[in-house]
């Protein structure tokens, strides 16, 4: 499975719009089998979508992302894990292991805020914290 992450200084890029580098990793049986960096076409969404399609990216891990862009990505069959933050290798490691990613969710985004919940079809979990009573 090809997984893409917008990266900035070894971390997940804070805002998708401003991200300039894309790390694409190949996950084989919960292990990172290959990784490559790609420059992100400057602010051209359609070129970015074409790049993801050419690289056969199934999942995009990124920082803050507005709803319109999330819909565009999802309409092209890309599953989006947005509003995540932290060290890229740690996030990828947790993702590959199918671990809970709640610890990497940006502040203010717990309890289902910031994004619609992605389909959890591959065993990974994100932001499942329930509202406290």
């Amino acid at each position: 499975m090809q997984v893409a992450v917008t990266v900035w200084e070894g971390r997940i890029s804070p805002v998708f719009d401003a991200a300039r580098t894309l790390l694409v990793v190949e996950l084989v049986e919960a292990e990172v089998a290959g990784r490559r960096l790609w420059p992100i076409p400057v602010a051209a969404m359609h070129t970015f979508l074409r790049l993801l399609a050419e690289l056969r990216v199934e999942v995009l891990i990124c920082g803050a992302l507005c709803e319109g862009q999330a819909r565009m990505l999802e309409s092209r069959g890309v599953e989006v894990l947005s509003f995540l933050t932290g060290d890229v290798d740690q996030v990828l490691g947790s993702f590959a292991a199918g671990a809970d990613l709640t610890a990497y969710v940006m502040p203010g985004c717990r309890r289902g805020r910031c994004r619609r919940m992605p389909a959890r079809t591959r065993g990974w979990k994100v932001a499942t914290e329930k509202p406290s009573i």
Binding site: P14, V15, G63, P107, R110
Partner: peptide, 19 residues
Amino acid sequence: REAIGRYCWEVFRSNMCEG
């Protein structure tokens, strides 16, 4: 309470943060 102690770019999320 969620913002204090966090990196500013994680909370502020501006398109200026990165560049």
